[in-house]
Design a protein around this nucleic acid. Structure first.
Lengths: 342, 342
DNA sequence: ATGAAAGCGCTAACAA
DNA sequence: TTGTTAGCGCTTTCAT
């Protein structure tokens, strides 16, 4: 670390005690106007900055928040992290990011690591593998602040920020139906994730609304969220080699959507001629794709911001917090040619 | 922060002094084997974790490193940050990320902020606006560890990790020439950046190698790195409305490359029929573009890792470091149809 | 209005 | 081999 000016230096230079300096700096009232001015001016002059580490030790607060996500190299999460950072920075917190790569073990290890780092709170989006949320339960019971975003743990009583997954899935499926497709498959994330269920429900509801029978064989779950080599490819191949294959696919996650196009292209399958496609993704360049992609887009940046606001509010609350809310944010369907019949 | 077990609790429970506990925990030799075992077992049992904040205060080290980049929502930088985090995490450092949005003032403010946070070192990629690097000079003279990556400050004596920009530019330009284009424009970043100059030189060298005269009017600099609304559009329009417009464009940064395609499409310009395109970018989905994009790709993840290794080595060096090296890493040209004559 | 001193968790120099 | 103590930078209680 770097030798910097301390309160002691100021005290010595001015011939006062460190407590006087501290009081002046903190705008206490029990101090003489003259002395205060003197200290403040000198501090300014030598460019004094309090040592945040000493403050942390004193206050028993690290002023840092831990983030648990599956991966950062993902448009949704990198945008969310951007939102998280933007709020945290302004409120004087720093952010420690950890990745689970969709593994429950890594998630557990990350949470442990963050706690050993004495983070003041946690911003969590569960891994695709996670079914056991006991560690969060324990922490919450001790009053430790946690806010879930995107992939929330069902049954845990705390703040959550989630997208309107049902509506997003409904809208995307509806768009495919309106484009003239009836045989629509759904490629989605692990069954463990609540978002997968919500999106599945939205998909089913749209089918139902338009009198299309739901075919369970048309639903493919990628239990590792597409992180495992061949997982997405296998699902797609199974779908396309069915006796009556789907004419369109609605894909339920950022990684799955992008992987699908890539794999379909490699397989020589034409979109949308051979199979149409619509999916959740937050990529900003999908309008440049061939064909331009129909997507459900989430306000990831704002979701990150909201979750962070809620977390910091909980952290800084003078009283234990017992009232929690779940913010549901709207998603946006953007129709492009990948979902249109040719 | 969260009430956790301290060395004092262990000492009290075991009826020994805190220093004994400390010694046991740190594997000191001046301690009885019995006592050591006792402490270690108990610490394990109650899941003791040292308080990193107390350690920081004691050691005068924050175990954090500051990162200065233009923006994180950029494929190159998000990948580099991934590399940075991967090393930092394993070495017990955490990473504080700040964004300049290509503004010199924000860069200065960020460096100040990071120093007030007592980071142990800095990983810097300059903003497009930066010409004055005095603040880094001052820090370096005091022995403060700084490693530049990608956008390094010329004339500062410290570690640097940069891509082989000359070769990347040469190769991309050469690919366009070999595809049959002679009138090749170069859209690039601010003149202030060394990388812009190196890429310009590579571009010129390729032209020269193939006996094509260099036309200064074919070079357009975006002084704000494309962060300012309309900046890229203006440059492109100027190029395309020339009496003898270019047949191909070589673009010299991630943001400029992606912006260009987007703008050209909006203008109704066909790639590569109306104008061919090749450019620096680290996007992983450009092969899905229409047309698939010819790119120069940098090993951003590795660059981040290397820079972090070098920084931590400098931070942890027992002696002042006077010998610095500049690592030059290879880039990769991937030719796709955006640069091919139709 | 100001100073002295304790304490946050930990390490290390010094004593025993 | 173990304990006592001081100190990292800061705030805050208790004296004065």
């Amino acid at each position: 670390m770097f030798k910097s000016v301390t309160i002691k230096d100021i005290a010595k230079a001015l011939g006062v005690s460190t407590s006087t300096v501290s009081r002046a700096l903190n705008g206490s009232y029990e101090i003489g106007t003259e002395t205060k001015k003197l200290v403040l001016e000198y501090a300014e002059k030598i460019n004094y900055r309090p040592n945040p580490i000493a403050l942390s030790l004193k206050e028993q607060k690290s002023h840092s928040i831990g983030v648990v996500v599956c991966e950062v190299a993902n448009d949704y999460f990198s945008q969310a992290i951007n939102g998280i950072e933007s709020i945290a920075y302004n409120r004087g917190y720093h952010v420690i990011i950890t990745q689970t790569h969709e593994s429950f073990d890594r998630e557990t290890a990350n949470v442990k690591h963050l706690l050993s780092r004495h983070v003041d709170g946690l911003l969590v989006s569960l891994s695709a593998q996670t079914t056991d949320t006991l560690q969060y339960q324990d922490l919450l019971e001790k009053g430790f602040p946690i806010v879930f975003f995107d992939r929330a743990a069902p049954g845990l009583n705390t703040h959550k920020v989630i997208a309107n997954n049902f509506k997003g899935a409904f809208d995307a499926t509806e768009a495919l139906i309106k484009a003239g497709f009836a045989k629509i498959a759904h490629l989605t994330n692990s069954k463990n994730l609540l978002i997968s269920l919500e999106r599945l429900e939205g998909y089913k509801a749209a089918l139902h609304e338009y009198g299309i029978e739901f075919n369970p064989a048309f639903v493919k779950h990628c239990d590792h969220g597409g992180m495992i080599q061949g997982e997405v490819e296998l699902a797609l191949k199974e779908l396309l080699s069915m006796d009556v294959p789907p004419q369109a696919i609605f894909s339920g996650s950022d990684r799955l959507t992008i992987s699908s196009i890539s794999i379909l292209k490699k397989m020589g399958i034409k979109i949308p001629q051979d199979v149409a496609l619509a999916g959740f993704t937050n990529s900003d360049v999908v309008q440049l794709f061939d064909p331009p992609l129909t997507v459900v887009r989430q306000p990831a940046f704002q979701i990150g911001q909201m979750a962070t606001e809620m977390l910091i509010k909980t952290i800084e609350s003078k009283w234990p917090v017992y009232e929690f809310n779940t913010e549901k944010v709207d998603v946006e369907l953007i129709v492009r040619s990948s979902s249109q019949k040719n």
